[in-house]
Computed example of a mutant assay.
Amino acid sequence: MTLAVLGPKGTFSCELAEKIREENEEILLFSTIRDVFTAVLEKNIRGIVPVENSEAGGVGETLDGLLQTECRITAEYYMPIRHFFVSRYSPDEISVIYTHPQSHEQCSIYLNCLKDAAIIHTSSNAQSAKEAAVVSKSAAVTTKSAAKLYDLPILQEDIQNSKNNTTRFLEITAGVSHPDDPEKCSVVIIPRENRPGLLYGILGIFARQGINLTRIESRPSKEGIGRYVFFIDFETNRGWQETIAELKEITGVKELGCYRRKNYA
Results as ranks from 00 to 15, higher is better:
residue 1 M to Q: 06
residue 5 V to N: 05
residue 12 F to Q: 03
residue 17 A to F: 05
residue 21 R to I: 07
residue 21 R to L: 09
residue 26 E to F: 00
residue 34 R to N: 11
residue 41 L to N: 01
residue 45 I to K: 03
residue 46 R to C: 03
residue 47 G to S: 11
residue 49 V to C: 07
residue 54 S to A: 12
residue 63 L to Y: 14
residue 63 L to S: 01
residue 65 G to H: 02
residue 66 L to T: 04
residue 74 T to P: 00
residue 76 E to H: 10
residue 82 R to F: 06
residue 82 R to Q: 12
residue 84 F to Y: 15
residue 87 S to T: 06
residue 87 S to M: 06
residue 88 R to F: 09
residue 90 S to M: 03
residue 92 D to K: 13
residue 93 E to D: 15
residue 98 Y to A: 07
residue 99 T to L: 08
residue 103 S to Y: 10
residue 105 E to A: 07
residue 110 Y to S: 03
residue 111 L to I: 10
residue 116 D to E: 15
residue 118 A to D: 09
residue 124 S to I: 03
residue 129 A to N: 10
residue 131 E to Y: 11
residue 135 V to T: 11
residue 135 V to P: 00
residue 142 T to F: 07
residue 149 L to E: 14
residue 152 L to P: 02
residue 156 Q to I: 04
residue 164 N to C: 00
residue 167 T to Q: 14
residue 170 L to A: 06
residue 176 V to T: 13
residue 181 D to Q: 13
residue 181 D to V: 12
residue 183 E to Y: 04
residue 183 E to G: 10
residue 190 I to K: 12
residue 204 G to L: 00
residue 206 F to W: 09
residue 206 F to L: 06
residue 207 A to D: 07
residue 212 N to I: 11
residue 214 T to S: 15
residue 220 P to R: 05
residue 227 R to E: 14
residue 227 R to G: 05
residue 235 E to L: 14
residue 235 E to H: 02
residue 236 T to E: 08
residue 236 T to A: 07
residue 237 N to I: 05
residue 238 R to G: 15
residue 240 W to M: 01
residue 246 E to D: 15
residue 250 I to L: 14
residue 251 T to Q: 03
residue 251 T to G: 08
residue 258 C to S: 10
residue 259 Y to R: 05
residue 265 A to G: 14
residue 265 A to L: 13
